[in-house]
């Protein structure tokens, strides 16, 4: 038993070591490879060059990615938080809860390329929205909905049952309790969940390919036009081969830096209450 216990401990430490080591290696590798092209002009200029992207910067892709992410979060967060609130505070039917959880888990299992295909055929073609930020944002919104919902439900679920029952015992409605107690109490966790959901959306490429991301566009002015996106730009740069690998690493550097900053903000917010 003692040997087994030591083995399990070793396994756990190895697991942590491999996980942290892999993440650290990826970040350091990308930052090392990409650092050489990072400059104010790379951040603030549009891509150029005989083969697009080998020169210039990635400014339209940064702004485009923020547009795609913002649209996805704006569409997904209210729905995800509302679903979590319904399941936690309002749904009294246990069977219904099981069904809703199954639906949410199913959505989280849909491959993102399938969501892209759905958005392309339904939004771009059938509804005639065309390739635009809104079409891609919708596909991304569906993709991150379970991600935010699960975290929101966890935050709501950690509220004390007796506190909720105390509000019920005063005759106050669950809606009042939700607005006055649950939302303010879980504010930080919810913001954290939404930011992390945004990070997830920012890094996703498949939902954008057919629906709104393009190889080149100027900085978008509305969600009804297509735009460049960092992951798509990265994909195209890598696909072009050796001539644009430096700018590809630079683009990956910016993407990871953005995601890292947002994740740190989200974790800091989420961790404060604890």
């Amino acid at each position: 038993m003692r040997h087994l216990s030591k083995l399990v401990k070793l396994w756990a430490f190895l697991g942590i070591g491999i996980t942290l080591g892999t993440v650290a290696f990826i970040f350091l590798f990308i930052f090392y490879e990409g650092a050489s092209v990072i400059s104010p002009s790379f951040i603030l200029e549009s891509p150029s060059g005989a083969i697009l992207g080998t020169e210039g910067g990635i400014f339209p892709a940064i702004i485009g990615s923020l547009f795609f992410t913002g649209t996805a979060v704006a569409m997904s967060a209210p729905a995800a938080v509302a679903a979590a609130a319904y399941i936690t505070f309002f749904c009294k039917n246990d069977r219904m809860k099981v069904v809703l959880h199954s639906v949410i888990n199913t959505i989280s299992g849909i491959p993102s390329i399938v969501l892209g295909l759905f958005a392309y055929s339904f939004l771009v073609k059938s509804l005639g929205l065309g390739r635009c930020i809104l079409s891609s944002g919708t596909a991304l919104a569906v993709m991150i909905l379970p991600f935010i919902e699960i975290r929101a439900e966890k935050a709501f679920g950690e509220l004390s049952e007796e506190m909720i029952r105390s509000s019920d015992a005063l005759g106050c409605s669950r809606t009042y309790m939700f607005l006055k107690i649950a939302l303010p109490s879980c504010k930080r966790e919810l913001i954290s969940a939404v930011i992390l959901g945004g990070c997830y959306a920012m890094g996703a490429t498949p939902p954008l390919i057919f629906t709104g991301a393009v190889a080149y566009a100027s900085v978008p002015e509305s969600i009804f036009e297509p735009a460049m996106a960092l992951p798509m730009h990265l994909y195209l740069l890598v696909a072009q081969g050796a001539t644009s690998m430096d700018t590809a690493y630079g683009t990956a550097f910016v993407m990871l830096a953005l995601i890292l900053i947002l994740t740190i903000i989200a974790r800091a917010l989420g961790g404060f209450r604890k």
């Binding site: 004390s160 007796e162 506190m163 019920d168 015992a169 005063l170 005759g171 409605s173 303010p184 109490s185």
Partner: peptide
Amino acid sequence: DLRRKVGLVFQTPAPFPMSIYKNMTYAPRY
């Protein structure tokens, strides 16, 4: 209406995560 007339206090004290004053005005405001 019933719960306004019949109050209930639980085993574990469960103050709401807000000020003492807001705890006390929670139900009247409702």
